[in-house]
Computed example of a mutant assay.
Amino acid sequence: MAKQQTGQVDARHYDVITAPHITEKSTLASEHNAVVFKVSGDATKPQIKEAVEAIFGVSVTGVNTLVMKGKTKRWKGKAYKRTDQKKAIVTLKDGDSIDVTSGI
């Protein structure tokens, strides 16, 4: 299969990036040109980079991923486990920025 042109938004890009992850720590990371996203569990770093560049129109210099393991909790005395979540810390080129508070 031939490689698609970069910058072309495809429906699969929205399947890779689920939502922005907005916390105090991710806000502090934004001072260093980094944005944190929740991504699908089977997304790879090249897929995440391609999706961010296509959706937001910025240049990505690096992608770091982590899997946050789900905690075991109790509800009405019965134990259950929260699902695992995968997060991606995307570092942008100097001068580029993403405003996650506004819509796409």
Results as ranks from 00 to 15, higher is better:
A2V: 04
A2S: 06
K3S: 04
K3V: 05
Q4I: 05
Q4S: 14
Q4R: 07
Q5P: 09
Q5D: 03
T6I: 04
T6N: 05
T6V: 02
G7R: 11
G7T: 13
Q8F: 15
D10P: 02
A11L: 10
A11T: 05
R12H: 07
H13P: 11
Y14P: 06
Y14Q: 06
D15E: 10
D15M: 03
V16F: 12
V16D: 04
I17D: 01
I17W: 15
I17L: 15
A19I: 04
H21W: 01
I22R: 07
I22D: 08
E24D: 11
E24K: 09
E24P: 00
E24T: 15
S26T: 11
T27P: 05
L28H: 15
A29I: 07
A29W: 09
A29R: 14
S30M: 11
S30P: 11
S30I: 15
E31L: 13
E31S: 01
N33W: 05
N33Y: 02
V35R: 11
V36G: 06
F37I: 03
F37M: 02
V39Y: 00
V39K: 00
S40C: 14
G41R: 01
D42T: 15
D42R: 06
A43Y: 03
A43H: 00
A43R: 00
A43D: 07
T44M: 01
T44R: 05
P46A: 00
P46E: 13
P46R: 13
Q47V: 12
Q47C: 10
Q47R: 11
Q47F: 09
Q47G: 14
I48S: 07
I48N: 08
K49G: 14
E50T: 06
A51C: 13
V52F: 10
E53D: 05
E53V: 04
I55R: 01
F56M: 08
F56A: 09
F56W: 09
F56P: 01
G57A: 09
G57V: 02
G57P: 04
V58S: 06
S59E: 04
G62M: 08
V63E: 08
V63P: 08
V63T: 13
N64C: 11
N64M: 08
T65I: 08
T65E: 07
L66Q: 00
V67K: 09
V67G: 07
M68G: 13
K69Q: 09
G70V: 12
K71E: 10
T72E: 06
K73L: 14
K73Q: 04
W75M: 15
W75E: 03
W75F: 11
K76R: 02
G77W: 04
G77T: 13
K78Q: 05
A79P: 13
A79C: 02
Y80P: 12
Y80H: 15
R82H: 13
T83G: 03
T83E: 01
T83C: 10
D84P: 05
Q85D: 05
K87W: 04
K87A: 05
K87D: 01
A88D: 00
A88Q: 00
A88I: 00
I89W: 01
V90Q: 01
T91G: 03
T91Q: 06
L92W: 06
L92Y: 03
D94C: 10
D94Q: 12
D94R: 12
D96P: 03
D96H: 11
D96C: 15
S97N: 01
I98A: 06
I98L: 06
I98F: 12
D99V: 13
D99P: 02
V100P: 05
V100K: 03
T101H: 12
T101R: 08
S102D: 02
S102Q: 00
G103P: 02
I104C: 14
I104W: 12
